[in-house]
């Protein structure tokens, strides 16, 4: 009888819920998670890229498509994470209250949080693999090391999911969620070295890009897909992302506990 309560990794059961929901509803998410990045790839990589390459030949030592592929990959990971971690979290806490049902079982608020964030990472494994495959077909991936961009994108997504999910659990309504997009997600999307090197920014702005967690995710993805691994830099990127994720995780465990057990 007690074996059920002490089983290992109870949060995996919270992940199971997400998998079951996804298996029912995945058709509705195809556009945002799979097609959206590919549309960006075509528009930016092929469209803008053709123009850029005509004028200047190369961006940061590679053709524009190869430059922008890792940017879109990491930025999409961030966007998917943000999209998963705001309204869906309030649905579980407030509108539909299924998180409350979960903590009435052996699961703890920390398990519910961990399940939610882990699932976002798993989704990115799927979506970034598809994206990488398509990008390879178009010639946007220059090295087999590009496979390492998948865990890089997953780490980026988990970092954002950890923080944004924690934040969402402190909110009572969705009022500020649009602001999170407008003042958070979209500026990061544009100014983290995604579509152009941050060296293009005015000198006084450029260092600010280092404040963006996405900057490190993009840098990490890019060194692998362009076949230019600098392991020291990679280590810094990974440490920064894991550090932010760990802080987010602490915050999330607390905000879920406060919200679900009062």
């Amino acid at each position: 009888m007690l074996a059920t309560a002490t089983a290992r990794w109870p949060f995996t059961r919270a992940v199971e819920r997400e998998i079951r929901v996804f298996s029912r509803l995945w058709r509705g998410t195809v556009f945002s998670t799979f097609l959206n990045p590919i549309v960006f790839l075509l528009a930016m990589g092929i469209g803008v890229g053709g123009m850029v390459d005509e004028h200047s030949g190369e961006v940061a030592g590679v053709h524009y498509l190869a430059f922008v592929v890792p940017g879109i990959m990491a930025a999409s990971a961030m966007q998917t994470a943000a999209g998963d971690s705001l309204w869906r979290v309030l649905a579980g806490l407030k509108w539909m209250r299924f998180f409350h049902a979960m903590v009435a079982t052996p699961l703890t608020p920390a398990d519910v949080y961990a399940g939610k964030v882990t699932w976002t990472g798993m989704r990115i494994v799927m979506s970034s693999s598809v994206f990488l495959g398509v990008a390879t077909v178009f010639g946007g991936v220059l090295s087999p090391l590009g496979l390492l961009a998948i865990p890089s994108a997953v780490l980026t997504a988990v970092t954002f999911a950890a923080v944004i999910t924690a934040y969402a659990a402190t909110q009572d309504s969705e009022a500020k969620f649009a602001v999170v997009y407008r003042l958070g997600v979209i500026p990061l999307f544009l100014f983290s070295g995604t579509f152009f090197p941050v060296s293009q920014l005015p000198d006084w702005v450029e260092p600010l890009s280092r404040l963006s967690p996405l900057y490190y995710g993009v840098e990490l993805c890019r060194m692998f897909t362009t076949g230019d691994p600098r392991w020291g830099v990679a280590l810094v990127d990974v440490v920064v992302l894991i550090g932010i994720a760990a802080l987010g995780w602490r915050w999330g465990t607390r905000s879920f506990t406060r919200r679900l057990t009062t």
Partner: peptide, 8 residues
């Protein structure tokens, strides 16, 4: 308050 899982 009902907290059934409407997604399932």
């Amino acid at each position: 308050e009902d907290n059934l899982d409407n997604d399932l």
